[in-house]
């Protein structure tokens, strides 16, 4: 019963908030509704029994990524509305609606096929009984997925260095302008 209420409440709120994210003209509205939607998605994870995933979603998405976005807001004009020429909306909504319909039909069909053969899919790494989700995830992550885990760590390090170099180097003057050109302009000015 509670699962039913939680599912319908969360899904309605998430769809509404993400529609605001996609449709809004204001960056701040879009960002706050995206953050709220991500919090509610972590609620989905908790009801699905993926406790550790829910906590990671809260910390990484709502904590780190949203903080990064709001930090980047400092560089852009976040308060004024965005003026953009949207591509023909009717076509886009038609395409989006069609893809949603196709995906829903695929999943309904999969469900029917699944009901016909319930034992066709077996778990690769089944959850152990009587063990908490975090412990279970740790045991699989550090044995079966150790190499991808380390590669992901290296990837995050590379991304961090790239972010620092792109955003943080010489914050006071332009990174992309040719420095030699600046000096030439200065020389020309001096001659005048």
């Amino acid at each position: 019963m509670y699962e039913l209420i939680a599912f319908y409440l969360f899904s309605a709120l998430i769809i509404g908030l993400f529609l605001v994210t996609v449709m809004s003209k204001n960056i701040l509205y879009a960002m706050t509704s995206l953050a709220a939607g991500m919090v509610l998605i972590s609620g989905f994870f908790f009801t699905l029994g993926a406790d550790f995933l829910g906590v990671v979603q809260l910390i990484v998405y709502v904590g780190a990524i949203m903080a990064l976005y709001s930090f980047a807001m400092m560089f852009f004009d976040a308060t004024k509305d965005i003026k953009e020429k949207n591509t023909s909306s009717a076509l886009v909504f038609l395409l989006g609606g069609m893809s949603a319909l196709v995906l829903v039909l695929i999943f309904v069909g999969l469900n029917q096929a699944n009901l016909a053969h319930p034992d066709a899919i077996t778990a690769l790494y089944p959850m152990t009984e009587g063990v908490g989700n975090a412990q279970d995830v740790g045991m699989v992550l550090f044995t079966k997925y150790l190499v991808p885990f380390e590669v992901a760590a290296v990837m995050l390090l590379v991304a961090m260095i790239a972010g620092i170099i792109l955003a943080g180097k010489k914050m006071d003057d332009s990174l992309t302008e040719d420095l030699g050109a600046d000096e030439e302009i200065m020389i020309v000015k001096d001659k005048k």
Binding site: V60, Y69, A72, F75, F76, M155, G163, L175
Partner: peptide, 15 residues
């Protein structure tokens, strides 16, 4: 992957 995408992407956006 999403976290690293945001880190690199926002740097590119700032530039």
């Amino acid at each position: 992957i999403a976290a690293s995408e945001v880190a690199v992407g926002l740097g590119i956006l700032i530039v």
